[in-house]
Amino acid sequence: MTVETPTTGAGTGFEPRIVAFICNWCTYAAADLAGVSRLQMPPNTLNIRVMCSGRINPMLVIRAFSQGADGVLVSGCHMGDCHYITGNYYARRRLLTLKSVLTGIGIEPERFRVTWISAAEAQDYQRVITEIVENVKRLGPLTLFRDGRVVARETTGCAEG
């Protein structure tokens, strides 16, 4: 997984790369709705559809940052609305513990967001994406993993296979 610098974007300044892990049953549909509703939002996100926010292993987030993401978003269903009943409850505890750790080592809280957006909330999706891109733009590139953007050959092999 490499994160490409967006080729389009406003102006010549820093264009952040945001990886968004979004749930198939809610936020992905919201993103879809936002698209067909022609809601404007920055094109800096790389959306990765997953079947549940509970599927997000903290390593996916850590790896995204180490591979050059400037921000990461995980978005799932509202509490009580999980397609798999409780997946998002587990995700919330796990990901917010991760957020404490990442904030602790100096990754600003704006760079890692965990939100709950239903399939109907296209405008919320637009707002969250706009917010995260604007915030990360203001913060600049993430410098902790300054030698990042490295992929082990085996990983690439898996992705291709």
Binding site: L96, P109, E131
Partner: peptide, 8 residues
């Protein structure tokens, strides 16, 4: 608790 966005 939930993610309080920037103010966590």
């Amino acid at each position: 608790p939930d993610d309080k966005g920037a103010g966590h």
